[in-house]
Design a protein around this nucleic acid. Structure first.
Lengths: 341, 341
DNA sequence: CAGTGGGACTAAATCGAGTTATCTCACCCT
DNA sequence: AGGGTGAGATAACTCGATTTAGTCCCACTG
């Protein structure tokens, strides 16, 4: 494969020293005294030959591979995974680490195979990621390794990284309040109560709590909340049925951008304009948000930052049971009207 | 890290044989004669101890890591990357390979660093992927390795994998023709001629050629093509300006789903219904296609298959300058009306 | 009875680093 | 001269596998 890769022995030979000496110089160990002259010769030889240490050999000896495993349930859906990987990779690469990326598709057998393959390759640590906040724990096989859990809401004896959904909810509501909205604010999607999730999903519960808090502080409250799953069709149905029932919303809090897409469709159909008639604020800041007309003000899921934080947490070696939340910033666009007092 | 991982020596000791014998049995080599009894003992010992070979040690000796590097320019955008990685990973894992995934962000310095890190880890092969069809070649440093290029249109001395855009164009047009459409068929987006790409992009040229061929066969032709970039706003502008100029399209070929989103917006604004007044067919089959109302018939980019094919091509060792095209299947939905003859 | 030929294993080298223990000087001191 | 010291370098071991090159024993042969 790599027919003529330069080895440490080559460098040593060219510098006229032993492999040991070359190793000491190149790994910058100061506890062994090497003459300045020898150091210069070794460094020169390494540079001339373009020497790079064979990481495989080094790993065998040191038990460190400078490789992190990234296991997720799904990497396909939305841009979530892409940005998470991006953030994780940037942070890893900065420190000379690479990422073994894999997904389980939610299949425990696939997961076992995959975890075994990673352990065989001696990954130094693992990011165990879920593509949206939900229950889930890393398998026992990983218990000997540093692991952070991304987006997992189950208890876990190590660092867990989550978007600050509560703060995000507050941010969304504050965007409306700051624009002068007070009454007739409706929520579309709500906590995501379905037959599978009677209490709502984690993100739904916290976002709604944040919204409620801020509205309460402003001396008002949600005028109504349409509870449904979070796909475009449900946003459409939700808004359509609100309007049919005679409600006249001035502002909508859509619990994600796909719901907002559906909401736009329903509003358009009834001749209501965004934001002149109805302001809309949403969550996720997916690509959709900038594609809609008018563009959609959305509270971003900090995908990139989540990935970054996950890897940084692993590499900084700070372990222990901890919850790290990452802020969800507002991306202001054109879907909120400023209401004159 | 892994305090008590079982080693080959442990297995050999328990089976009462030498490491050599254990190695022969476990790697299933028949050229060395091992008694059935010894074989049974070794296999039993390995099973009892849960032995798994240390891939790092094995790699050092054999120069094979069973790890493939996947380098792309961008993994963040759209679901492209996710599905490509998914397909690549499934195929890799089937054969006991894993994927080192990384992206360059188009930055040659990041690319160099990344390629070096991969070479240091002795990846067996590399998938060099571009997230949409465009020029680009793998760096020289990879020349000693098996490499396939995904989505690259530049010449390259090895396998190249591309979606069958020409066939895709034909498929889109045939969907309209088969539904009874004949006249007043317009293209939105066209070849994607912009100041950067005066001749249009690869996908645009081939898709349009496919469309033209099928319409010609059907004894007709495109009534007009609006040339623009391929974002939603351009789709909106394109359709809006066609209508303003007095055109009355019966069907639109949108060169991707985002353009179709814009087209929907413009049609809706003018009170034109999809598909009653205007049929729409599109390309990419992104998530958008199923979110729109009505759902959008689209010719899919075979992301998963592209990833699968890339890895399969690498692992089957079939090299040499070749072009492999992957079919783009039609995903029929509700945006095409059947026109009665 | 020495010689030969396989069957069934194993000792030792190897991959390319990192690490420990040792060795060789030159120099100083008494 | 002999002994201690320490700077500067190296031989040899280690990581956990694979692989080469033998070894040992026994049956069989001429």
């Amino acid at each position: 494969m790599t027919p003529f890769r330069v080895t440490l022995a080559d460098v040593a030979r060219r510098a006229g020293v032993s492999r040991t000496t070359a190793s000491f110089v190149l790994s910058g160990r100061t506890d062994m005294r090497i003459s300045p002259d020898a150091q210069r010769r070794v460094n020169a030889a390494a540079a001339e030959l373009g020497y790079r240490p064979n990481q495989t050999a080094r790993s065998l000896r040191t038990q460190v591979t400078r490789t992190i495993g990234m296991i997720s349930d799904t990497i396909a859906t939305t841009q979530f995974a892409g940005e998470v990987i991006h953030g994780a990779l940037d942070t890893a690469l900065e420190r000379g680490y690479l990422l073994l990326v894999a997904e389980t598709s939610g299949d425990p057998i696939a997961e076992k195979k995959l975890v075994d393959e990673m352990l065989d390759r001696q990954v130094d640590a693992v990011v165990y990621a879920m593509m949206f906040t939900k229950p889930g724990c890393p398998p026992d096989a990983l218990s000997e390794l540093p692991v952070v859990v991304l987006n997992g809401i189950d208890d876990f004896d190590g660092p867990r990284i989550l978007p600050d959904e509560l703060g995000g909810g507050r941010t969304a509501a504050r965007a409306l309040v700051d624009a002068g909205h007070h009454d007739d604010i409706y929520a579309i999607g709500g906590r995501h109560r379905t037959t599978d999730t009677p209490d709502g999903v984690y993100a739904g519960r916290l976002r709604m709590r944040g919204v409620d808090e801020v509205l309460a502080d402003a001396g008002t409250a949600i005028a109504g909340s349409y509870e449904c799953a979070w796909e475009p069709e449900h946003g459409y149905e939700g808004v359509a049925s609100l309007l049919d029932e005679g409600h006249r919303p001035k502002a909508l809090v859509c619990l994600n951008d796909r719901l907002a897409l559906g909401a736009y469709q329903a509003l358009e159909e009834r001749g209501l304009r965004v934001p002149e008639d109805v302001s809309v604020v949403s969550f996720d800041d997916s690509d959709l948000a900038s594609w809609l007309r008018p563009t959609l003000t959305s509270v971003a899921l900090p995908h990139y930052e989540l990935g970054k934080t996950a890897v940084a947490t692993l590499l900084d070696g700070t372990s222990g049971r901890r919850l790290i939340t990452v802020p969800m910033p507002l991306r202001p666009r054109d879907s909120i009207r400023t209401v004159s007092a």
